Each structure stands twice: as C-alpha cells, then as structure tokens.
Amino acid sequence: MELREIEIFLVLAEELHFGRTAERMRVTPARISQTIKKQERAIGAELFKRTSRSVQLTPTGMVLRDGLAVGYQQIKEALAAAAAAGRGITGELNIAYSAAWCGTLVVAATDSFRARHPNCLVRIHESPLLDPLGPLRNGTHDIQLVELPIEEPDIVNGPVLFSEPRALVVPVGHPFARRDTVSLEDLADAALITVTGQPQYFLDHHYPHRTPKGRPIARGPSTTAWQEVLALVGAGKGVSPTCARAAQYYSRPDVVYVPFSDAPLVEYGLLWSATNSTPKVQAFTEILLERAQAASASSPGH
C-alpha cells in the first residue's frame, strides 16, 4: 500500500464521508472509491460498510486504522524532521513577548512549531521594558512579539498579528474610576506615569505630551517595570495608558482599568534582527501568523 493510499484510507476512516474525504485529499470521490476497493481486494475483506446514508468502518477496517495510524504518524514526523533539517530548522530558537496576552499566543505557536520541527528547541522569554531591542541585537532573542511602533534600520518588522483597544489604568479612588470611558483629552487632567528604555518615538506614541486639542499632559514618575507602573498608579501617583486586556491579566484591588472612547488601537507585531532572517525565524513567524488568524476568527464578532 502506497503512502498516498494510506492517507486516503485514514482520512476516510476519520471523515466517514467520501465527498469530504475527496475535498481534503484534492481528488474526486471516484478516486477515493477506487482506492478503497483496491485495498479491500488486497486484504480480502471489506474495510467500510456503505449505505446511501452512511459510511462505517468494519471490524477489519478498525484493525487496519489502528495499525496504520501509529506508523503513519511516525512517517510524517520523520519526513518533517528531515525537511526541517534540510532547511536548517534545528538547534535552538529564542522567542520573547512583551505582554501576557502575547505570551499566550507565543505558547500556542510554540506547541505547533515543536510538533512540526521536533529537532529545534524553543525557549520562551519575557521581553524587558528596559532596552527591549538589545536582546535582538546581541542575539539573545531571535523573535519578539511586542507593541508597535518600532522603526529601526537593523530590525525587521514582521507582520502585525493583532490589535487591541486601549484603556487607562487609574487609582481606585480617582474620579475617572467611576466613569464608563475616558478620552484622550482627559489626559490633561492627570499626571501620566511612563516607562523608560524604549525609543523616543515609541514613548511619544504611547505617552503623548499633548492632547489632540493641544493641552499639555503632565508627567508623573517614570519606571522600567510594568509592575512598578501598577504600584505607582495604585499609590495615587498618576495614571497610565495600556491595553484594555490588561484588566484580565493584571487585576489589582487598588487600580481600575477604564476604556478609552477615542484612542487608536495598540498594534502588536513581530520583530527580528536584519542579520537573523533564518529559516527558523521564518518558520516560526508563519506559525505565529496562523495561530493569530485562527484566534481572530474564533473570537466574538467573527
């Protein structure tokens, strides 16, 4: 039995429908039927019971399915490993992310990557707020999933994977905490806690100095760690913009996340060094994009 014939049998054993099997295998239903009849002649017994309404495995078919499935998976893994080795997808790959919701996507993509490329070890890291591009430049990180914008001549901007609405994290007793939404103009009425270590254009984008109407936005303390931002907000030292989803991951009794009504979305995208556009990086990027698109398609509203 040839590999293609094994695939046809196993897909039909899963689908139990000639039409769907033909679609998956990109052949005609007649080809599926011919292949199964050939197998049944070679084995000397029926593999499927067919009626006008259903297709069911016979006991002989079940024995063949269970026996072939394990071997077929081993063949697929061996072929994938050989192909990966041929393309240089071996060794180690270091992936970093900036926020917890990015980490969830990275972990899911890592599981898929390991299944496809078992000879490549993936390590997952958290991207630092202080000098986030340093690990890309010195080779500690191969890929980072972070907030944008990042525009550096030696850093490649990969695809934008998803976008998220913004919120303002405020002290629990702040007047904004009792509101359903805030606006960018409201930033003129509170001190803005910021972070350091990012490119200046990044800071200007996320922590503006003026409102859309030109009103100045006061500056509060600055720090290099997100948990310190939350501690400062909780202590009443100011407010800070963030992604609205932070409320699900960084809940605290002393802060409240209030959605913006008019702020642009936060974009999250992939970065890697221009000197590190390897097959490993490209392969992981493709899987991350697949997982991000699947997550977007399954989210409410799609």
Score class of each variant (00 low, 15 high):
residue 150 I to R: 00
residue 150 I to F: 15
residue 150 I to V: 15
residue 150 I to M: 07
residue 151 E to I: 11
residue 151 E to G: 05
residue 151 E to Q: 13
residue 151 E to N: 14
residue 152 E to Q: 14
residue 152 E to S: 10
residue 153 P to T: 10
residue 153 P to W: 08
residue 153 P to H: 08
residue 154 D to T: 15
residue 154 D to M: 06
residue 154 D to Y: 05
residue 154 D to C: 05
residue 154 D to F: 04
residue 155 I to D: 01
residue 155 I to Q: 01
residue 155 I to A: 03
residue 155 I to W: 01
residue 155 I to Y: 00
residue 156 V to N: 00
residue 156 V to D: 01
residue 156 V to G: 00
residue 156 V to F: 00
residue 156 V to K: 02
residue 156 V to I: 15
residue 157 N to Q: 14
residue 157 N to E: 14
residue 157 N to L: 14
residue 157 N to C: 11
residue 157 N to A: 13
residue 158 G to F: 03
residue 158 G to P: 04
residue 158 G to A: 08
residue 158 G to H: 03
residue 158 G to K: 04
residue 158 G to N: 05
residue 159 P to H: 09
residue 160 V to T: 15
residue 160 V to D: 08
residue 161 L to R: 01
residue 161 L to W: 02
residue 161 L to P: 03
residue 161 L to A: 05
residue 161 L to Y: 02
residue 161 L to H: 02
residue 162 F to S: 05
residue 162 F to P: 00
residue 163 S to M: 07
residue 163 S to P: 01
residue 164 E to N: 12
residue 164 E to M: 14
residue 164 E to R: 14
residue 164 E to P: 01
residue 164 E to D: 13
residue 164 E to Q: 13
residue 164 E to W: 08
residue 164 E to K: 12
residue 165 P to N: 12
residue 165 P to C: 09
residue 166 R to V: 03
residue 166 R to T: 05
residue 166 R to S: 09
residue 167 A to P: 00
residue 167 A to D: 04
residue 167 A to W: 01
residue 168 L to I: 04
residue 168 L to F: 03
residue 168 L to H: 02
residue 168 L to Y: 02
residue 168 L to A: 03
residue 169 V to Q: 01
residue 169 V to I: 15
residue 169 V to M: 10
residue 169 V to A: 02
residue 169 V to G: 00
residue 169 V to K: 00
residue 169 V to Y: 00
residue 170 V to D: 00
residue 170 V to N: 00
residue 170 V to S: 01
residue 170 V to P: 01
residue 170 V to W: 00
residue 171 P to Q: 14
residue 171 P to G: 11
residue 171 P to A: 13
residue 171 P to V: 13
residue 171 P to E: 10
residue 171 P to F: 12
residue 171 P to Y: 11
residue 171 P to T: 12
residue 172 V to R: 12
residue 172 V to K: 09
residue 172 V to Q: 10
residue 173 G to A: 13
residue 173 G to E: 14
residue 173 G to D: 15
residue 173 G to T: 13
residue 173 G to C: 05
residue 173 G to H: 14
residue 174 H to W: 09
residue 174 H to I: 09
residue 175 P to T: 09
residue 175 P to I: 06
residue 175 P to D: 09
residue 175 P to Q: 06
residue 176 F to T: 06
residue 177 A to K: 05
residue 177 A to R: 04
residue 177 A to D: 06
residue 177 A to M: 08
residue 177 A to Q: 08
residue 178 R to V: 06
residue 178 R to Q: 15
residue 178 R to H: 12
residue 178 R to M: 13
residue 178 R to E: 15
residue 178 R to F: 12
residue 178 R to G: 11
residue 179 R to P: 05
residue 179 R to T: 07
residue 179 R to M: 08
residue 179 R to K: 13
residue 179 R to H: 12
residue 180 D to K: 15
residue 180 D to G: 12
residue 180 D to I: 03
residue 180 D to P: 11
residue 181 T to F: 14
residue 181 T to E: 08
residue 181 T to G: 04
residue 181 T to I: 09
residue 181 T to C: 07
residue 181 T to K: 04
residue 182 V to K: 03
residue 182 V to C: 09
residue 182 V to A: 07
residue 182 V to R: 02
